[in-house]
Design a protein around this nucleic acid. Structure first.
Lengths: 234, 234
DNA sequence: ACAAAAGTGTTCAGAGTACACCCATGT
DNA sequence: ACATGGGTGTACTCTGAACACTTTTGT
């Protein structure tokens, strides 16, 4: 550490940096949160977000990806930095600055892997947020607000779905995120005109006799609209 | 530090935490950035954001307020956390995690104080951002994007104006932030119908013979619209 | 009288919203 | 034949966007 970085004050000291992950998924048409139940004191029995410390030789964003991978086995996941939580007394064990990240994962595809990898992780309903330990409840609340805001202007709903999906599935994702019913005719109209969907000839017959057409994302339009913003004002 | 916080890995070590401030103001109808010119090596001569380290016994947000105060003499300023910049090699002097904050200040009211307090601070045009040291350019770019985004949906333009202001001043603030001309008739119509403005009987005669009416913010509507969001889609 | 900024209305196009019925198919 | 979810179209309202002239008053 060179001289110009030497603290300006006596009371400037290095502190631990942690990453906490708010992981969203959808199960049974409801928005869920991936957490684990602490088994050790303090706070045994409380629910906790998935978190770990940042290593000195890795960037915070690398740490976030590593931590997500270590705890869920998943890579290449939609992940976004939420906020830095820096109350000096947020962790009774000592000074820890936490950087919170949130991510969206495709539950149906991947949920098997969690059970293998991680001890006590489980999906909880978002109305159990108050049971979270430390300031994790605050983190999760903010993440939900952020997700909802984002969902209204960026086409992130897709991140929660498998490659091929039906319009109804997409609609249900948005209903789950925004937590209110959406008119299916207006939804179809808008999405089909958006250029975001590539219609396939295949049908998914698992939910009805008639079967419903499958779609893929149009990655190109997706990229463009991600930047420009697109109003999902439902 | 209690046992449960002991690092899970050898290479988890505490690190310095800094706050860097992106401070926006408006001068001559242009959006400006408050920076200072480094005089010491390394990077002497480069422009730098205002930043300092976080103390162990203060929260990160407290640090942000303290640092803004120490460097500008200003308190009770609109301030918002932007992002945590955590590249492991972002500072060649050692591992420093930076939390960037941005704020809006009323230049005309307060600009005297800066000159007194701080050595080498000055306002620069936002197209000189590339001259900033380290990753400060990245920070400032992100802050501007954030400010513009925010300005479109929250009535933050007011934060850059004195208590009493004319509609033209408000319009110019938005033109400065969004960096494009705005139709004054549509702007007036919308703002006057928004309930955000309390018309005063006074006129400001400094800019024209006719004089233009002064307004105050309606704090109540302001609070409400800050939460609900309000589209300044100009 | 004139210069300089303040103030004022209307029309048009596009987007969101509300709303109800027929279609295809497996059993 | 019928039950189940899939798919479709229209009318109304609201909001944003474009656009040019009159008013006030100090000099």
């Amino acid at each position: 550490m060179t001289k110009y970085l030497s603290p300006q004050y006596e009371d400037v000291k290095p502190m631990l940096t942690a990453v906490d992950c708010i992981i969203f998924g959808i199960q049974e048409t409801k928005l869920k949160l991936l957490v684990f139940k602490r088994e050790v004191e303090p706070f045994a029995g409380c629910l906790s977000l998935l978190g770990r410390f940042v290593k000195v030789e890795e960037s915070v964003s690398e740490a976030a990806e590593r931590i997500l991978f270590e705890l869920t086995g998943l890579e290449n996941i939609y992940m976004e930095q939420l906020h830095c939580f820096g109350r000096f007394d947020r962790d009774p064990g000592g000074r820890v600055v936490a950087i919170a990240y949130w991510s969206l994962i495709r539950v149906d595809q991947n949920h098997l892997e969690f059970n293998v990898r991680s001890h006590e992780t489980k999906w909880i309903s978002i109305d159990r947020i108050s049971e979270l330990v430390l300031d994790h409840g605050e983190m999760a609340e903010l993440a939900i607000a952020n997700l909802r805001e984002k969902a209204r202007f960026r086409p992130i709903g897709f991140e929660l779905l498998p490659e091929e999906f039906t319009l109804r599935q997409l609609l249900m994702v948005y209903e789950a995120i925004l937590d209110h019913p959406i008119d299916s005719r207006n939804f179809r109209k808008k999405l089909l005109n958006s250029g975001l969907l590539i219609p396939l000839t295949k049908k998914d017959k698992s939910t009805s006799k008639k079967g419903s057409f499958l779609y893929k994302f149009n990655q190109e339009t997706y990229q463009k609209l991600s930047q420009e913003g697109y109003s999902f004002g439902f």
